[in-house]
């Protein structure tokens, strides 16, 4: 389950950084049945967080209503150069991580 992050490499101080994240994950709703008629247990990414230079700046709690292979786009205010790190965890405690470095000028 890969996690991809896309951010601009450079940003102006006080400007905005657009963060785009794409996670490969089935987001199993718990309402599906397999070919043998057994209910597939719910397993969704319920927690997603983004840290910028070590500080949490954005967090999401997701449910079964988020589509498979979750895509998220949000913003972070550029203050200093640093890593934008995204982490997620699902209900079976699997987790993923992706990070990208932003250089802030000015």
């Amino acid at each position: 389950m890969t996690t991809r992050i896309q951010v601009p490499r450079q940003a102006r101080r006080g400007g905005l950084i657009e963060v785009r994240v794409l996670i490969q994950h089935p987001m199993e709703t718990g309402f599906r049945y397999d070919s043998l008629g057994r209910q597939t247990p719910r397993n969704v990414i319920h927690r997603f967080e983004c840290r910028y230079d070590g500080v949490e700046v954005f967090r999401a709690e997701m449910g079964a209503g988020i589509a498979a292979n979750p895509y998220l786009r949000f913003f972070v205010r550029a203050e200093r150069s640093g890593d934008i790190e995204c982490r997620w965890v699902d209900q079976e405690n699997a987790s993923g991580y992706a990070s990208a470095r932003v250089t802030v000028n000015g």
Binding site: L16, G65, L72, R73, F75, V76, R77
Partner: peptide
């Protein structure tokens, strides 16, 4: 469906998802 937590450090209150 989902809950998003933002703050002044978010810069712009805009979120896209599916």
């Amino acid at each position: 469906i989902a809950t998003y937590f933002l703050g002044p450090q978010t810069g712009r209150a805009e979120i896209e998802s599916r």
